[in-house]
């Protein structure tokens, strides 16, 4: 391997461990809406001041004395700001689940967690203590598994499961992918004496395709559903029931990382309950129900 290839592989390997928040586009949209509202307020205020100046001039000409103040313009921006989406409290934590012997990811709300140790505790509490949002997903770990302690030393997160051992390679990777996503550290041990574990290659571990957004049972207001698909293939088929004109349609997966590609689109539909199904060649699929209000 040439030095350039070594650098390239090291950077790509590191970059591939970086997950992004599922609500990133919504966050950007909320900020651009706020910015637009502020701009509108500035225009409104500017116009208001011009009117006020004109009124003041008229009053100054017509009769001496103090000019009347224009009415408060703040009711309009307040009403506009009220249209911005409410951001739920608590950070989103990535939790990996099993789906057809591969891993898929969901984001769950957790209590505020500032340190890597707290984030890992929160993610594992969700992984061991709650059910996935999508009923098609499961945990590869047996019920009753519990975390006794989480410690971080250097790049290694040690998870004490009270002597419990992983029942399968997939369960091991479920824990490793969840812990590394939460800690942003690359290594994990199960028990103080356990071997150091890292993420197995994505192509061998993650589901061939999944719906990043919407998550199962999401409720979307305003009729616009942001659809975000991840997969390893070049294309994926998106179908919607009840039927929507133009679907099923083939999506081109691109960008993302060399290992996992993505597609994104905005679906505008009337209010209702829809099932979105994404499928790739070979038959692998993922479906989520979304309620549009």
């Amino acid at each position: 391997m040439t030095p350039e290839e070594t650098i390239r592989r090291a950077l790509e390997s590191e970059a591939s461990t970086v997950d992004v928040r599922p609500d990133a586009l919504s966050t950007i949209r909320a900020r651009t809406r706020r910015r637009r509202t502020r701009a509108a307020v500035r225009v409104w205020l500017g116009a208001g001041m011009a009117v006020a100046a004109a009124v003041a001039l008229i009053f100054a000409v017509d009769r001496p004395g103090p000019a009347p103040l224009p009415g408060s313009p703040t009711s309009t921006p307040t009403a506009s700001a009220g249209a911005s989406p409410t951001v739920a409290a608590g950070p989103l934590v990535a939790v990996y689940w099993s789906h057809d012997d591969r891993l898929v990811r969901e984001f769950h709300r957790a209590a505020a967690a500032d340190t890597p140790t707290d984030r890992v505790r929160a993610a594992l509490a969700l992984m061991f203590g709650t059910a996935p949002l999508d009923p098609d997903y499961t945990s590869a770990w047996p019920a009753g598994t519990a975390v006794r302690d989480v410690t971080v030393a250097g790049d290694v997160v040690t998870v004490d499961l009270g002597g419990a051992t992983s029942p399968s390679a997939l369960a091991t990777q479920q824990l490793v992918w969840t812990v590394t996503a939460a800690s942003t550290l690359p290594e994990v041990r199960i028990g103080a004496g356990g071997p150091v574990l890292r993420r197995a290659p994505a192509i061998d571990t993650l589901a061939p395709v999944w719906l990043i957004n919407p998550q199962h049972d999401d409720v979307v207001r305003g009729g616009r559903v942001e659809v975000h698909v991840a997969g390893f293939a070049a294309t994926a088929r998106l179908d919607i029931t009840p039927a929507v004109a133009g679907y099923p349609r083939d999506l081109t997966l691109a960008g993302g990382s060399p290992a996992q590609r993505e597609a994104q689109l905005t679906l505008t539909v009337p209010p209702g309950r829809y099932t979105l199904t994404v499928t790739v060649a070979g038959g692998a699929s993922d479906d989520h129900i979304v309620v549009v209000e």
């Binding site: 950077l11 970059a15 942001e226 691109a254 993302g256 990382s257 993505e262 994104q264 905005t266």
Partner: peptide, 21 residues
């Protein structure tokens, strides 16, 4: 809005990874 949606789909994650590196 449309520009952000398109560019987000294609470039958001690579940009986060770039910034992270």
């Amino acid at each position: 809005d449309e520009a952000v949606t398109h560019l987000f789909g294609a470039h958001y994650r690579p940009m986060v990874r770039l910034a992270s590196l």
